[in-house]
Nucleic acid binder design. Structure first.
Length: 506
RNA sequence: GGCCCGUUCGUCUAGGGGUUAGGACGUUAGAUUUUCAUUCUAGAAACAGGGGUUCGAUUCCCCUACGGGCUACCA
C-alpha cells in the first residue's frame, strides 16, 4: 500500500435493481475503506442515457443504507469532488479526449454503427484496431482537409483510443498478482461517444484521477479492459497516481454455470436483489432479500463470506468485525456459486443472535400486515423471545407467533381425533374447572396440576399434552405448551379449550 | 474463434513439499426436547488429468481438459 489516503469508490450504473454482486463489490470497497480509515465514495455512472432507469439511483442508495454501507461522499452527500453523477460531469471529459487526440493517442472516427456491424459480420475476428483502422473512416486514414471538413460540418463522430502495436501491458492486481496483455489483441475502444458522453473507459480513468481514488475494486468481468485503462493513465500523464486494482471473483448461478444474473431470481424463485425492485415497464416486482425476511446483518455477513474468509473458521461476523478482519490477501480468486440455503442459515443464526428488541419493529409489521392487531409491545417482545429460535426468515414469525394473538382458525384434527375419548373431554373440563380457581396461570404450577390430574384420571400426560397444544396452537409445533398457556392467560386459555372441545367432539 | 482469469467434499472454503487433507452449509443416523424447532454426538463426502522438479507432490513448473469472463458509440 502506498502512503496516500485510502479513497475507494463504488460506481454502479443506474440501470435497474442492484443485485448481489454489486452489493458485494460495494461491501468490499466499504470494508477496505473503513479498515484503513479511508473514504468510501458512491459515484453514479450514468453515461448511457439509453439504459437509464428512473428510480434506480434512489434504489441503490436505499440498498446501501439498508446494508449499513454508508458513503462518505455521494450525489446526495457531496464532498469536495462533486458532482458525483457522471452525467453532470459531461463537460469535463471532452477536454481529456481532445488532449489525447492532440498527443496522437486517440483519433476521431466517423464510421456509422451500420458500417461497423457489417464489418463485424463479414470479417471474422474483426476489431477496430491496428489491422483494420486504416481502411475505416477516421482521422488516421482520411486526409486532413477531409477530417477538418467533417468536423466543421458537425458530422457525428466518436473519439477512439489508438492502441499501440507490439507492446505488453501489465500490472499487479491485488488479488491475482501479475496480469499481462498484448496490445495487438486490444481494440481501439471508443472513449467519447457521438452524443458527447464518455464511455466507461474514459470516465472511470478521469474520475478516479480527479477524485483521488487510491484503490479500485471491481468485478472480474472488467479484467479484459484493464489494458485500455492502464494505457489511458499513462497517456494522460497520471501514471504515478493510478489506483491499485483489485478484480473481484464473480458470483455464479446456484445451478449450472455462469455469472449470476438478475433473471436467475425469477427463474429459480430466489432473491438476487437486496431490496424489492419494481420494474415500471413491466409492472412487476421482484422480491429482494429484505422483502423475503432477511436481516441486513445476515445478508451482509453472507455476502462477505462469498469469496472471502478470515482463515479462522469463524462464520458469524458483525460489520465491525468484518471491518477489522477484512484483508485483500484473503479474497479468493475463483468465482463462488450463490448458495441460497447458506444465506437462509445465516439469517436463522442472526435471528437467534440478536435481541428481541432488534426484531420488534419488523415482526410487528409482518403480523400487522397479516391483519393482527398488536396492543401491547411488551407482550409482543415476550412472544418474539419465545419463538425466535424456530424462525429462519422474519416471515416465519407469522406462522410461529400468530396464535399468541388470535385463537387457531383450524386444528390439526388428524393428530387428536383418532385417539379422542370421552375421558379426555372430562379431563379438559376438569382442567377448566381447576384453572377457574387460580388467580392467573403460572407455567410450572399448571404443568404440575395438569400432570397430577392426568395421573388421577389414569391418562398418560403425553396423551393429553398434544391435544392441549392443538387446542391452543392449532398444530404440532411451538414452544413448551404450558409456557404458551401462561402467556395466553387464564381467560384465553379456558376459552380456547372450550372452543376446541366443541370441534373435537363433533 | 481470439484474449484473459480460474480449478480442494454437492456448495462456501482452510491448508500447503512429508497432515488421519480441517471447518461451515446441506445431507444421513442417533441423543435431548411428552409437539416442532433449537442444541448435542456421530457418519458419508474433495485435492480435474498427464508430464516434470524432488528422497517425497494436493502443494512448485509445464501441458491438456474443464469452467468462467471479455470480445458494443453497455456498464
Amino acid at each position: 500500500m502506498s502512503d496516500k489516503k485510502v479513497r475507494v469508490r463504488f460506481a454502479p450504473s443506474p440501470t435497474g435493481g442492484l443485485h448481489l454482486g454489486g452489493v458485494r463489490t460495494a461491501l468490499f470497497n466499504y470494508l477496505f475503506a473503513k479498515k484503513y480509515g479511508g473514504d468510501f465514495i458512491l459515484r453514479i455512472e450514468d453515461t448511457d442515457q439509453n439504459r437509464y432507469v428512473e428510480g434506480a439511483e434512489a434504489y441503490i442508495m436505499d440498498c446501501l443504507n439498508w446494508c449499513g454501507i454508508i458513503p462518505d461522499e455521494s450525489p446526495v452527500t457531496p464532498g469536495k469532488y462533486a458532482p458525483y453523477r457522471q452525467s453532470e460531469r459531461k463537460s469535463i471529459y471532452r477536454e481529456y479526449a481532445e488532449r489525447l487526440v492532440m498527443q496522437g493517442h486517440a483519433y476521431y472516427a466517423f464510421d456509422t454503427a451500420e458500417e461497423l456491424d457489417k464489418n463485424r459480420k463479414e470479417i471474422p475476428n474483426f476489431q477496430y484496431g491496428q489491422v483494420y483502422r486504416d481502411g475505416l473512416r477516421n482521422s488516421l486514414s482520411l486526409p486532413q482537409h477531409e477530417v477538418d471538413q467533417l468536423l466543421a460540418n458537425n458530422t457525428p463522430h466518436v473519439i477512439r483510443i489508438k492502441i499501440p502495436a507490439d507492446e505488453t501491458v501489465s500490472f499487479t492486481d491485488m488479488i491475482r498478482g501479475r496480469v499481462s496483455f498484448e496490445t495487438n489483441q486490444v481494440d481501439d475502444k471508443v472513449l467519447l461517444k457521438a452524443d458527447g458522453m464518455p464511455t466507461y473507459h474514459l470516465a472511470v480513468v478521469v474520475d478516479d484521477y480527479l477524485m483521488k481514488i487510491s484503490h479500485a475494486f471491481r468485478g472480474e468481468e472488467w479484467l479484459p479492459s484493464a489494458p485500455v485503462h492502464l494505457l489511458l493513465w499513462n497517456y494522460l500523464g497520471w501514471k504515478a497516481d493510478m489506483p491499485q486494482w483489485a478484480h473481484l471473483p464473480l458470483i455464479l448461478k446456484p445451478d449450472g454455470h455462469g455469472k449470476l444474473s438478475k433473471r436467475d431470481g425469477a427463474r429459480l424463485g430466489i432473491p438476487v436483489y437486496a431490496l424489492d425492485w419494481e420494474d415500471e415497464q413491466s409492472g412487476t416486482t421482484t422480491q429482494g432479500f429484505r422483502g423475503m425476511g432477511f436481516l441486513p446483518e445476515a445478508f451482509v455477513n453472507f455476502l462477505a463470506t462469498l469469496g472471502w474468509n478470515d482463515g479462522s473458521g469463524q462464520e458469524i461476523f458483525t460489520m465491525d468485525e468484518l471491518i477489522s478482519k477484512f484483508s485483500i490477501e484473503r479474497i479468493s480468486k475463483a468465482g463462488a456459486k450463490f448458495d441460497f440455503e447458506k444465506a437462509r442459515w445465516y439469517n436463522a443464526e442472526w435471528i437467534k443472535k440478536v435481541k428481541g428488541e432488534r426484531l420488534k419493529a419488523a415482526v410487528k409489521k409482518i403480523l400487522e400486515d397479516k391483519g393482527i392487531t398488536i396492543k401491547n409491545d411488551t407482550y409482543l417482545l415476550t412472544v418474539i423471545e419465545l419463538v425466535k429460535d424456530r424462525c429462519t426468515l422474519l416471515s416465519d414469525f407469522y406462522p410461529q407467533a400468530c396464535y399468541f394473538f388470535e385463537s387457531p382458525k383450524e386444528y390439526d384434527l388428524n393428530a387428536v381425533k383418532p385417539k379422542w375419548t370421552e375421558e379426555k373431554t372430562a379431563f379438559f373440563n376438569k382442567v377448566i374447572e381447576l384453572q377457574k380457581t387460580v388467580e392467573q396461570i403460572e407455567a410450572v404450577e399448571l404443568e404440575n396440576t395438569f400432570k397430577a390430574l392426568a395421573e388421577e384420571k389414569g391418562l398418560k400426560a403425553g396423551d393429553v399434552m398434544l391435544p392441549f397444544r392443538i387446542m391452543l396452537v392449532g398444530g404440532k409445533f411451538g414452544p413448551h405448551v404450558f409456557d404458551i398457556a401462561a402467556l395466553l392467560g387464564k381467560e384465553e386459555t379456558i376459552g380456547r379449550i372450550n372452543k376446541a372441545l366443541v370441534v373435537f367432539n363433533n
